[in-house]
């Protein structure tokens, strides 16, 4: 669906995207992940034909973005960053306008507007002025606009930014529901977001791809750093002694919590799962164990490590 090869974008004085290549298959949900300024929005703007590339080839649905821009734009539903809308228009009126602008015949436009209003739960606000809507509703209007002409490819730039957790959840569900019929490219700077919605992630930093793959494969690559969290009711000194004696524990950290419990974060050597050992130890010593988990935030760790590396290097100098 998307073929990007050696894409470079230079603005006067700096390089926003530096020779990235990736492919997106039909029906996939792919997340472009990276800190602010990594080149996510620039990449999306080039994909949608809004900006030209400095170098490189970009093809969407078999059409060249630079030379067959109109064909490409017909097949893309795009929601830019910050979801710009016309505040003076009413929801239905706006969607109707966008549908007609994208070339749908009148009857088809009306029918599609009804469908997307339903799909994005906008029916009850369809007669309201966009400027008076809450941020969550406005975001859904932007999504409805991206969907209204049934595009093959949907590109969403930071679709959940600035929403409250409930709204984020509903937008995320909406995106997931679209996935078998549409190919979706979303950008986010939140790893958690990408992990929950995307089949595949592409992590960008300073205009370069620094990692790519499925959430599982990325997790595999960092299995060794999977931490185990255990909350035990035991004296701190005793805990400390235990962890020091366990050969599998590489690093540990103990924090006192309430009622004599201690929260221990244990980093194992070589990807070992420490949970059975912790449980056995608690049983043997008669400690109360109230939590035992393997840290699920390890992806966040690599993300932070990958994307922060440069800043740290700079600090060292």
């Amino acid at each position: 669906m998307i073929q990007v090869s050696e894409l470079t974008k230079r603005y006067a004085g700096h390089t926003a995207v530096a020779g990235i290549s990736f492919h997106v298959q039909r029906g996939e949900i792919v997340g472009l992940l990276g800190p602010n300024g990594a080149g996510k929005s620039t990449t999306m703007r080039i994909l949608t034909g809004f900006l030209p590339a400095t170098h490189g080839k970009v093809r969407v649905a078999g059409f060249d973005v630079a030379t067959e821009s109109a064909e490409v734009r017909r097949r893309i539903g795009y929601m830019p960053e910050n979801n710009p809308l016309y505040p003076e228009m009413r929801v239905r009126e706006y969607l109707k306008f966008r549908a007609r602008l994208k070339g749908l015949p009148r009857a088809r436009a009306n029918a599609r507007v009804d469908v997307v209003l339903q799909q994005c739960s906008l029916t009850e606000v369809s007669r309201k002025t966009i400027g008076h809507l809450s941020k969550g509703y406005r975001q859904r209007v932007g999504l409805a606009d991206a969907l209204v002409h049934e595009p093959e490819l949907i590109i969403l730039d930071e679709p959940t930014i600035g929403l409250d957790p409930n709204q984020i959840r509903s937008v995320r569900q909406l995106i997931k529901d679209l996935s078998p019929k549409h190919t979706i490219l979303i950008s986010t700077h939140l790893l958690h977001e990408a992990e929950l919605t995307c089949h595949r992630m592409i992590i960008l930093r300073e205009g370069k791809i620094i990692a790519a793959g499925t959430p599982d494969s990325l997790q595999q690559s960092v299995r060794q750093s999977l931490k185990v969290i255990a909350e035990l009711a035991a004296p701190e000194a005793e805990l400390k002694q235990c962890w020091e004696q366990l050969p599998e524990v590489a690093l540990f950290d103990i924090v006192a919590t309430d009622n004599g419990f201690h929260r221990c974060a244990l980093t194992p050597h070589g990807g070992a799962d420490l949970r059975p050992q912790v449980f056995a130890l608690a049983k043997q010593r008669g400690w109360t164990l109230r939590e035992l988990t393997r840290n699920r935030h390890s992806l966040e760790d690599i993300y932070v490590r990958l994307t922060r590396r440069h800043e740290e290097e700079e600090e060292e100098f």
Partner: peptide, 10 residues
């Protein structure tokens, strides 16, 4: 920013 939504329509 509506310029972007406008110009990315066909």
């Amino acid at each position: 920013g509506t310029f972007e939504t406008l110009m990315t329509a066909p």
